[in-house]
Design a protein around this nucleic acid. Structure first.
Lengths: 329, 329
DNA sequence: CTGTTAGCGCCTTCAC
DNA sequence: GTGAAGGCGCTAACAG
């Protein structure tokens, strides 16, 4: 920077101000400076700037690497967060969520200005330490006790209720919820409880008896479920499905066993649009707005960076229901 | 750091040396320093260290965001690169590959020590500017002209040849290659050419007539292909499939049209293990070692960081063939 | 084995 | 509008 000051015949600070624009600079000198910059191929040094300003223009993101989290979903989160960050002139620093010590370290050492943590589970043990960090943190997920941290997530409770009400409004009276087994091994992600709760509340509201059916993701189990409840006892005429990997199998089982979908039974899933329409059928669904969540997380972080006094709060994105081929008109 | 020096009753530099271990420190003072660190919750400031050492301990990764690159594959690359980086005490800075200006900027400004660029295409326009960067760069992919940059990729040429030879050794004589249409819109990824070339070379070597059949990824097109070539004209008894999204559809089409697989026709795919076994059948395959590629890219970068004089070269991972249910014994 | 000191490259409050 | 000077927190010679 000294070089280009000399080259342009001005003082070092003038160059700095020309670059940051934090002070009016005459058009003439501004141009001389710019041309010197081009000529010398100058690039400001990020670490020096960071040291002086205490800002890295880096956002941290703790990504889960466990096999049982759908790679597509994670990728969409990462991608939307990356895009949103770039739009605000931030870069993204990735750290493995499993390595919590490292996650803390990158913020303690000031490698990032703020942090996004995804894949929260109920009673997540990381929450207390995250709450102690000296920089803004937002969680993707909505744990019962967020320890005062900002949260962003889809409103699964409302989403589940919307689905059940819709099934009911279109004529279903025996509405079950189909979901994955509450794994006792792994603690549940924060949305599992809220989704079930929403389903139960809606049933209560409508005077229906709630029935939550847990089924593994393999085709055989799905087939068995369909045979038992839809072919034999026929005790279900509406299905709220929160079980993405099972959706496609469900559709095939219907076809194989001769269940005609909007007629015999209506189905509403809660899923990202692409998985709702990617299987053998186009499933009516409550949209899971992954990239909106990602973008919201970033903008929330920026607000907190702008004004750390903002009271911490949660943002739950509202459900939008898209009727497709699995519900009646 | 001054604080903990005072607190421990030593000089500032002693603290620094105690932390970096670049100088022997007596056990006694070392402990006093450590306890002061714990007491004051001290954490070294990354940007200050980076400014002083000219090292950020950050690796850059340019990730593609285009829809037509399989999210699972990208995620596995990212994940393996992230893990490998952490193992070497590096963090990972993500930037959108589509934003090439930004990609260059993060290295010009010294935000990263080195850069990995994935999803290279033939004649990639980014190569010249990447070659001019003042830090190590490795490409994931193997373009014909790498501009002197280091490359890491699977050896698709050998992989294709291995597959064809294997089919031939197990009795197939009319071996076709099934792959995705060479999109005229998007330029081809670097492996497309090498895979086809390997297939052709193997055919030549074995005295077979090469037949490259391009089929879109949708189930209908796959079904049509099977009907035409395996049911009607029956002019194929061996299939080298480099077309991941089509694999599952192919298996279903075989089942639906009564093609018995190792008997009527043998199939070897080139694919990651998980996709080879995830469909309706377990496909014999040449392993696509995605995470090995990722890890290799990182270790190559570190070698270059350690000794920039290392002559640039490419690393092509050798094929490993896994016989499964689609080849004869 | 420990202390002193001069930067790393940029920002920013001051005087001019 | 411009220039001079101190400081951000740490590293690494250079002396002891």
């Amino acid at each position: 920077m000294t070089d280009i000051a000399r080259e342009a015949g001005v003082s070092l600070s003038t160059v700095s101000y020309a670059l940051s624009g934090k002070r009016p600079i005459s058009e003439a000198t501004r141009e001389r400076i710019q041309s010197a910059i081009d000529r010398l191929q100058y690039h400001p040094t990020a670490s020096a700037r960071a040291l002086a300003t205490q800002r890295t223009s880096l956002l941290g993101l703790a990504v889960p690497q466990r096999e049982d989290v759908d790679a597509h979903v994670i990728m969409e989160f990462v991608s939307s967060i990356l895009t949103a960050s770039h739009e605000q002139d931030y870069d993204l620093l990735l750290v493995a969520a499993e390595d919590h010590a490292r996650t803390q370290r990158v913020v303690d050492e000031g490698k990032v200005d703020a942090l996004i943590v995804m894949d929260l589970i109920e009673g997540d043990p990381r929450i207390p330490s995250l709450a102690r960090l000296p920089r803004p943190v937002v969680l993707i997920g909505y744990p019962q006790d967020s320890g005062g941290l900002a949260c962003v997530d889809f409103d699964f409770l409302s989403g589940a209720m919307a689905a059940v009400r819709e099934l009911h409004a279109r004529g279903s009276r025996r509405i079950a919820m189909l979901t994955s087994p509450a794994s006792t091994a792994r603690p549940a992600p924060t949305y599992a409880r809220r989704s079930r709760l929403g389903y139960t509340m809606a049933c209560t509201e409508l005077g229906l008896a709630p029935r939550i059916i847990e089924v593994p993701r393999d085709p055989e189990s799905i087939g068995a479920f369909v045979r038992e409840h839809l072919v034999e006892s026929q005790d279900i005429d509406g299905l709220y499905v929160h079980h993405e990997p099972a959706l496609a199998h469900l559709g095939r089982a219907f076809a194989a066993l001769g269940i005609s979908c909007p007629q015999d039974v209506q189905v509403i899933a809660i899923a990202p649009d692409d998985v709702a329409v990617s299987g053998p059928w186009d499933v009516s669904s409550v949209q899971l707005p992954i990239s909106s969540i990602g973008r919201t997380a970033v903008s929330m972080l920026l607000e907190l960076l702008g004004d750390p006094a903002i009271p911490p709060h949660s943002r739950l994105l509202s459900p939008v229901l898209i009727p497709r081929a699995t519900t009646r008109a």
